[in-house]
Structure formats: C-alpha cells, structure tokens
Amino acid sequence: MKYVIINGSPRRKNTWKMVEYAKNNLKGDFEEIHLMKEKIPLCNGCYNCIVEGEDKCPHNDKIKPIIDKMKEADGIIIACPVYALNVTALLKNFFDHTAYLYHRPEFFTKKALVVVSTAGIGQKDVAKYIDETLRHWGVNKVYKITYAYGAKDLPDIKNIDEISKKFGKDVGSKKLHGPKLGDIVFFDVWKAMALSNNPIEADKEFWFKNDLVNKDFAPEVKLNIFKKLFSKVMFLILKRVIK
C-alpha cells in the first residue's frame, strides 16, 4: 500500500507524534508532504480553478504535484493541530486552492485518515471540518483520530492503534463503502449544474468527459436500491430547481 501524508502543521511535534504512532500500524510506503516546506502562495480568490479549470490556477505548479501524489496513493493522511479553534493557515490555504474539487470530485476510490491534536479544545470540530472537505472531494471513507494533549506528554495510544488499524485494513481491502445520503445530494447538485442552461464550462466538460451525468453516483461505488432511487428522485428535483 502507498500512503501520502499531508502535514498541515508548521512543526513536527504533538500532531506528528500521533502520525508516527499511526504509521506503526500501517503497512506500506509513505510519502510526506510538509506544507510549511511547500511555500504555497496564498489563494487570491481568482476563481480560475473553478471557472476555467484547475490548470489555470496561478499556483498550479505548487498544487498539482500534491494532488497527483494523492491520486496515486491508496490512502491519504491529513494531519493538523488546532490553531485558534480551526485548522492551521497552512492547511486552510491548501484547501482553498482545491475549491474546484467541490465542483469536480475525483477521489471516490480513496480512503483517508484525519489526525488532529490540540493543547486545549476544538479537536473534534476541526476533524469534522477536514472530514467534510474530504467528503466533498469524493473521498469514500474518512477515519478520525483526535486528542487533547493538555499537560500530558503521550497521546491515547490505544485509540490511535485501534483507528489506524481499521484504516489500514480498510485501505488494503479495496472495498468501497456506500455514500451517505448527503454525499449523494451534493453529487446530484453538481450534476444538475453541469446540465443547466448556463453551466460552468470546466464543470460541464468534467462531468461529461467522465460520463458522470449518466450515473446516480460515481460508477466505482455501488448503491443499494434505496440509494439509487433516492439519487434519481433528488436529481429530478434539483434539475427543476437548477435550470
């Protein structure tokens, strides 16, 4: 198995210690991407990645290599401490550069592990935010490890072992999980927008090129009868709303 680790911390201290414990339970090769070293310029909100295509991002030379490594990996690990009750500026800036993935999700066959630490509070909310972002990218399953260090030196090793082992086993199984209903709704939203009278051209090209406009969800992910029906009905409703 091949794992890529995105380190959203400017340091390698508490959060990275948790990552190292998790790695002990994962078999495979690891590639580390430390966002502090990548020196990604701040997203300037130009919307180029959404409207014209991600290759038109002025910082595409920094972002594309990271995205490509994530696509090549079997498992993705996102590590981030809590800074002012949110993710670090490093990770938020990277996420801002991937806004196009909300419109054009590509990670339907990937699974991810989110590792968050804090000296105080906010770890669960930060992990939830990262989880939601990854799900909008299309990520099939997200596992979360959170821990409040406080005055303690060692993290909850038992919890790290348990969750990281489940993550590794799931990645190795190659099994894909059925999506949540909310994930299906967003899939249908973007599909309906691609078929609207005034679509974003980059979105339209993506959805037609990958034949997603004719699918109830990503073709690699199987839906049960209920979820198939739910997707069809939801799409018909959204198609009427988004014209």
Rank of each mutant, 00 (worst) to 15 (best):
M193I: 09
N93P: 06
T118A: 14
V233E: 08
P219W: 01
V139F: 08
D161H: 03
A192Q: 01
G28P: 07
K152S: 05
S164G: 04
P219Q: 12
I78H: 12
I200M: 13
Q123L: 08
T146R: 06
G75F: 01
A218T: 13
F107L: 07
K166A: 10
Y129K: 14
E106H: 01
D29V: 06
K39M: 14
A89P: 01
A99G: 13
V51R: 09
G150E: 05
E132K: 08
I66L: 15
F226A: 08
S164F: 10
N7L: 07
N7W: 00
R135A: 02
K228C: 06
N14I: 03
R104W: 00
K158I: 02
A79F: 03
F235W: 12
L90W: 14
V116D: 01
L91Q: 10
E132H: 11
N159R: 05
E220W: 01
E20P: 09
F226M: 09
F217Q: 08
K37E: 15
K111N: 09
I160W: 10
E31M: 14
R104C: 07
K165T: 14
I121G: 03
T88W: 08
P41E: 09
A192H: 02
K144T: 04
F206V: 00
E205K: 09
D188G: 05
D61P: 14
E32P: 07
I237V: 14
H103W: 00
P199Y: 07
G28S: 05
P219S: 05
S173W: 14
I145D: 06
D211R: 08
